[in-house]
Amino acid sequence: MEILMILTVGVLVSVSTYLLLTKSLLRVVLGIVLLSHAAHLLFLTMAGLKEGAPPLLGEEAASYADPLPQALILTAIVIGFGVTAFLLVLSYRTYKEHKTDDLEKLRGSADE
C-alpha cells in the first residue's frame, strides 16, 4: 500500500510542477492546488499507514492511527484553502486589470 501511495504522490508532484511551469495563470493556480494535495498525502504516508482505529479514544481500540500528523495536515488543508482562494481572486483581478491571463504578456514593462 505504501508503495502505491508513494507513486501516487510522485505523479501528483510531477503533474503539479508541470502545471506551475505553464503560462496560463489558471493552470498555475490548479498546479498549486494539486501540489498541496501531494504534500498532504506524502505527509500521511510518511507517518505510516498502519491500520489502527481512527484516533477516537471512544473506540476503546488496542491501537490508533497516529493523531499528530492528522492534526498537522488538517491545519495545512485549511491554510492551503486560504492560499488558493487568495490566488484565485488575485488572478481574477490581474485579468480584470490587464485583460490577459497569459504570463508571457504579464512580464511587466521594460523600465521596471
Binding site: L7, V9, G10, V11, V13, S14, V15, T17, Y18
Partner: peptide, 11 residues
Amino acid sequence: IISVGMGAIVT
C-alpha cells in the same frame, strides 16, 4: 524534464 525530475526526487 523538470516536472518528472521533481516527481522522481519526491518519490
